[in-house]
Simulated assay, not measured.
Amino acid sequence: MAYPPLGDMLAALRETTPLVHCMTNYVAMNSTANLLLATGASPAMLHAPEEVAEFTALAGALSINIGTLSTPWAESMQLAARTANASQTPWVLDPVAVGATAFRQQVCQALLPHWPSVIRANASEVMALTGLASQGRGVDATASTDDAAHAAISLAQRQHCIVAMTGETDFLTDGTHHFRLTGGHPLMPRVTTLGCGLSALVAGFVAANREHPLTATLAALACFSIAGHRAGQRADGPGSFQVALLDALYQLTPDDLSSLSQVEALHAV
């Protein structure tokens, strides 16, 4: 199967500047907005039930992150996801620590019937969503992407969506086509909310490339991988890394994305 160059996905993002409606956690709002702006998308952070449905219908994509859940936020997320499904607006689910509490499991189980376009999660979260694990240690992954590859494929097939499972090595699947992505830098797990920002960035890429959601998701992950590697070469620690990552995302070119991505298509898992 032929896929367009990853660089085309970044070029489309910067040409269209998609508006991404981010329903994300308190910790991630600022950093997520900056990551989107640095890469070329436009962020908005809205949670009030009085306006989320109206705004979701106007946005290019929706990103839902359950990091700091509350009952009012969960209700707003339901409204937004329902609207996205009805209006055919692509949306991304980031099921933060879904295996940690019954409340998180219930919220995610209520969101899944609204058919997210992409689920972006770590291995433990993927396994929790597929019922293969009932416990998770906060937002940290306790399983590797290799351990959870079959769970990711099963989840993608069940939900008719793309599953982007990120970690030391990333695994991407639509249930039929599978990819492994390497790169990044060891400092990335030392900076909070990078995964949250990546989920929103996936939403932006899919909004700008609706005809190629799988390639768009892969391009978003590749952006983070290349930029993370470059930022790590300049940084002295987590603080300077965060600043360097924003600069690296801003400086990334479509040619960089097409030539430097460490992507492997997998024929069997």
Rank of each mutant, 00 (worst) to 15 (best):
T173E: 06
A235N: 12
H47T: 07
T253L: 02
L266P: 02
G228L: 11
D146I: 15
L62A: 10
G195H: 06
N85F: 14
A123G: 05
A28E: 05
L249C: 07
Q78P: 08
A220P: 07
V27F: 02
S63T: 03
G184M: 08
L249A: 02
A227V: 00
T193F: 09
V243A: 13
G183R: 10
L35S: 13
G7R: 09
R137H: 15
L201F: 05
V163M: 07
A149D: 04
E75Y: 09
N34E: 03
G99S: 08
A227K: 11
V126I: 09
Q135I: 15
A57Y: 03
R190A: 15
N25P: 01
L260Q: 15
A59K: 08
T253I: 08
N209Y: 01
L260T: 02
T215R: 09
M1P: 12
P189Y: 10
L13P: 01
T176G: 11
H212M: 00
L93S: 04
L35D: 03
A216W: 06
G67C: 10
A268I: 14
L35G: 12
M23V: 04
L111D: 08
S154I: 12
V269Y: 15
T71Q: 15
P5E: 04
L187P: 01
A203E: 01
F103H: 10
Q78A: 15
M1Q: 14
A74C: 06
E75C: 00
T176C: 13
S154F: 14
L111E: 07
L10D: 12
A28H: 05
Q233D: 08
A220E: 12
A164G: 13
P186V: 05
P254H: 10
A81L: 09
G138P: 03
P4S: 05
A44L: 13
E15Y: 02
P113A: 07
A12C: 06
H229C: 12
P43W: 13
M1I: 05
D174S: 03
S240Q: 10
D247P: 01
A81N: 04
Q109R: 11
L111Y: 03
G228I: 06
A265V: 14
Y250N: 15
M45S: 07
G7D: 10
S117C: 07
T71Y: 14
L260K: 06
